[in-house]
Amino acid sequence: MEEPLRRIRALHMVSTITVYQAYSHEIGLPAVRDGRFPAAWKPDRMTWIKPSFMWMMYRSGWGMKEGQETVLAVEITREGFEWALQHACLSRYERGLHPDRATWQRDLKHAPARVQWDPERDLHLRPLPHRSLQLGLSGEASARYADEWIVSIKHVTPLATEIYALVRDGELDSAARLLPQEQEYPASAELLTRLCPDRQSGHMNRSGFGGGSMR
């Protein structure tokens, strides 16, 4: 069976979902210690959360890129995650999904969250045919994320380092066994239709969208 082009895949429990971010030690280590972001974290900036562990590895270079040395697994409430999705706008205009470009631009300007779909990555960080969700939070969504939704924050850079070492040594099966067990997130059909162009059109649209600077 062919993998759906866009589907939310995540490590999730009954009431929580895990998302990933990477920061400098200045931000990441106090966040792990205190279970919340420190004053150095700027709530007025858009912050991107990623349910895909492998996309975070691609983005952070296995936690070795400058300013992304502390990879965080942030467990948040599913209620908060779904609030963000319900108030999100796609990051790029899609004909047939939005009434017109002006309407999309207006919605994007006022939305506290935005959705991008970018190619999922394999253990060699190569792009796969299907796409992973990234969720940008700003304004009210960013504040709610930092102040209300966080259940726990874990330091997973050691895990990233261990998996990378196995990949480097060609031990792909062992590396794969260490990956978080991400499964399809049970988002409503209505929500996915609004956020997935291929579901709106009724066919698998292989043209991608997204891009931009994310942290």
Rank of each mutant, 00 (worst) to 15 (best):
Q200Y: 00
R78F: 10
S138G: 07
L159Q: 12
I163T: 02
D107E: 14
W149A: 06
P186E: 03
D173I: 12
G96R: 14
T161Y: 08
T77Q: 07
L195V: 10
A146P: 00
Y185R: 14
R95I: 09
R126N: 05
S188H: 04
E140Y: 07
L85E: 04
L123D: 00
L72N: 05
G67F: 03
P129E: 08
L72K: 11
V151I: 13
T157P: 10
R114P: 06
L195C: 06
W117E: 04
T193M: 10
P119I: 06
E182F: 00
L108K: 08
L191S: 10
G170C: 01
S142N: 10
E171W: 06
G170E: 01
Q68M: 15
G96E: 09
N205V: 14
Y93K: 07
E94W: 09
L133H: 05
E66L: 14
P127M: 01
H155K: 15
E148A: 13
P119E: 01
T193G: 14
R131P: 02
D147I: 00
S174G: 04
C196K: 04
L97V: 13
A88E: 04
Q183R: 11
E190S: 14
E148R: 08
G136T: 02
L172A: 01
S188F: 02
V115I: 15
G139S: 01
L125C: 07
T161M: 09
H155E: 15
G67A: 10
T103Y: 11
R114W: 08
E94D: 05
A146F: 00
L108D: 04
E79Q: 15
C89K: 04
S152N: 15
A176K: 13
L128H: 00
H98D: 14
R194W: 03
L159R: 08
P112E: 07
A165R: 13
L133K: 10
L179W: 02
L166N: 03
Q116F: 08
H110P: 12
R177N: 06
R106H: 08
L172V: 07
E120L: 13
R92Y: 02
L97T: 06
V74I: 15
H110F: 03
Q105L: 14
D198W: 05
L108Y: 08
I163D: 02
R131D: 05
E94V: 14
A73V: 00
E120F: 01
A73Q: 13
P127F: 03
Q183Y: 04
L128A: 02
